[in-house]
């Protein structure tokens, strides 16, 4: 069987099997050649765009970086159009990573719970509808999350913030120092919003992974007398570990670049602070959205330089997630 030439167009006809290439009609007629190159060009556009993003961001960032008199990596303020020009991504990097990682920590257990619920607890007939329902969270635009976070969520976080300050205030993270009532335009509120926004992506990927758990393992565990949770702990979770990890990383990548939800919720301040429930904070994306209007020539270059950093970080995060998932697939 294995020696028979495959007829499918998807397999490449090799030189020593000319009859195969004739049957599959590949690359002999002019129409084929034209169509093939059109498809190839479309595929190449992906690579060209990705390369162009890197090239043009670097090209526009370099002059501004040359004008910068402060340390780009550690300086926390953003005055690119001053003379001398001083700007740095210290605060941006800190708050971007902080809010995204917090969002991932909040979202991950809930998302895995949802995925397990939909695959193993909900009635089978309802599971598709429930999955669609959770995916609807991804359809809500970022700016609507921002409006909602500002007008609805932030005012209602006061009780939680005061509770955490009272009982967990000895952890600097949850310590709320100002004496007035918090209005919660804080990195913590931003993290909660981001967590809601990345729930659907983490849970839908986890769902796919859990669905692929070999039926025999699940049934073997149940046949040995395991309860449903013991079955999940011994058969499902070990199988899904890599998939869930990469889902979490992809969710992190999504949170890193989220713009308007964060912009509307944070009351911008460029000081790095451990106290996440206090007002303040600024991320790569929110800084760009806030400063592009007033930016001069150096300012625009500086924003592009910060965008380049964000691009590199998300690129690294996404590559990692893809590596994890591809390794799992090949194993």
């Amino acid at each position: 069987m294995s020696e028979q030439p495959t007829l499918g167009g998807a397999t490449t006809p090799s030189v020593d099997r000319p009859q195969a290439s004739n049957i599959s009609g590949a690359s002999v007629r002019p129409g084929d050649r034209v169509f093939r190159s059109a498809a190839l060009t479309a595929g190449a556009i992906v690579l060209v765009v990705m390369a162009a993003i890197a090239v043009f961001l670097v090209y526009r960032a370099v002059p501004a970086l040359r004008d910068n008199t402060a340390n780009f990596l550690t300086f926390q303020q953003w005055f690119p159009d001053n003379d001398p020009s001083t700007f740095g991504i210290g605060a941006l990097l800190y708050f971007t990573v902080l809010t995204s990682v917090l969002a991932m920590i909040i979202a991950l257990p809930v998302a895995v719970g949802i995925a397990l619920f939909i695959t193993y607890y909900a009635p089978r007939r309802a599971s598709q509808t429930l999955g669609y329902f959770v995916d609807l969270l991804a359809a809500v635009p970022s700016i609507v999350y921002g409006l909602w976070g500002f007008a609805f969520l932030a005012p209602r976080m006061t009780g939680l913030v005061q509770f955490m300050d009272k009982y967990f205030g000895w952890i600097p993270l949850f310590d709320y120092r100002p004496t007035n009532v918090p209005n919660n335009l804080s990195p913590f509120t931003a993290s909660v919003i981001l967590a809601i926004m990345i729930l659907p992506i983490i849970s839908s990927i986890s769902r796919e992974v859990f669905r692929q758990v070999p039926r025999e393992q699940v049934e073997a565990a149940l046949a040995l007398g395991a309860t449903r949770w013991e079955m999940i702990r011994t058969a499902v979770l070990p199988f899904g570990r890599a998939g869930v990890t990469s889902a979490a990383i992809l969710g992190l990548g999504r949170a890193l670049g989220e713009t308007l939800a964060v912009t509307l919720v944070l009351s911008t301040a460029y000081e790095v602070s451990l106290h996440i429930t206090e007002n303040g904070g600024v991320t790569f994306a929110s800084n760009i959205a806030l400063k592009y209007g007033e930016a001069g020539e150096v300012g625009t270059g500086a924003l592009i330089a910060s965008g380049l950093c964000l691009f590199v970080i998300t690129l690294a995060v996404n590559f990692t997630a893809n590596l994890v998932i591809r390794r799992q697939r090949s194993a």
């Binding site: 670049g257 965008g307 998300t314 995060v317 893809n322």
Partner: peptide, 10 residues
């Protein structure tokens, strides 16, 4: 796959 993760602002 990587392009899916490019932030909209970038």
């Amino acid at each position: 796959d990587v392009m899916t993760g490019v932030p909209s602002i970038v």
